[in-house]
Design a protein around this nucleic acid. Structure first.
Lengths: 143, 143
DNA sequence: CTCTTGTAGATGCAACTGCATCTATATCGA
DNA sequence: TCGATATAGATGCAGTTGCATCTACAAGAG
């Protein structure tokens, strides 16, 4: 077995660490503001983007990189909290269409400044615009 | 509230995505090889590094960025699997010293090629050495 | 010494996740 | 049309996590 280069290992470990630290910062900020966790934001955003037509859970799970059962349960919880609405789909008796409720839209809007604040503090103040772009480019090559 | 730059958002979303995709790839490879999950590897590695003297759980949790209860339970499971050994520490009746067992060492060694193989395939084949170094540098600035 | 405060680690409980499987509907080939 | 296969989504169960709290020992103040 070939050994990875030191640079490879450094890239990976710093990736994991940065992810953990930032995620934790965001979660903490949201919690302190009495708002839902970050995965709800991502879901609310995707649903909002599609809101003219609504979106199907199977599409959503692909965009959010969630397993099928994870998506199903996340939607359960969000529906129970009154943030989304599940309705039957015309033309496919198996499926459903997800839409935001007004409360869902409001919750997303309330979460955004908290989320954005952390991104500004943790990313924007530490990387120049060019560096951020370069970071995105390099990370993009990984997937 | 000031809006983050597009570059900031792109950096963050690509960070989250890259992390998820790579992590999933590694977990899948380990699972297919019948080996424990990645967090066990990280713990085994840290314990191994300290093995001359052993290491205390409270030190370990800081290096691994785990909450105290998470560390406690991870050690429970690893001890139950026979990979680590918890012994009393002389001079501090509250604490314990963690060491690898032979099986723990062997497990770490068995995991390494699988882990390394994914890193080579997913990182090293997609980024040059310079790019990987640059990626690590940029990520390092975030934390 | 004894009381208060601090630190190491464990644990009950509720929520969440992964895995496997299940139900229901859709689609495709003979 | 019918049977086989594929797709959408839900769910039982066991294992894991987060939160709050608890126990035990340590350290410093009076």
């Amino acid at each position: 077995m070939k050994k990875p280069e030191n640079e490879t290992i450094a890239a990976w470990t710093s990736l994991v660490t940065a992810n953990r630290v930032l995620l934790e910062t965001i979660e903490k900020a949201l919690k302190e503001a009495g708002l839902p966790q970050i995965d709800w934001y991502d879901a609310l955003l995707e649903i909002d983007k599609a809101d003219a037509t609504g979106i199907r859970p199977f599409e959503l799970k692909e965009r959010l990189l969630l397993p099928q059962y994870g998506m199903s349960r996340l939607l359960d919880r969000m529906a129970k909290a009154g943030l989304v609405d599940r309705r039957e789909v015309e033309g496919d008796g198996r499926g459903q269409i997800i839409r935001l409720t007004n409360k869902g839209r409001a919750t997303r809007l309330a979460m955004w400044p908290v989320y954005a604040g952390v991104l500004i503090g943790s990313v924007e103040q530490r990387l120049s615009k060019d560096e951020a772009a370069e970071l995105a480019r390099l990370l993009g090559k990984l997937t």
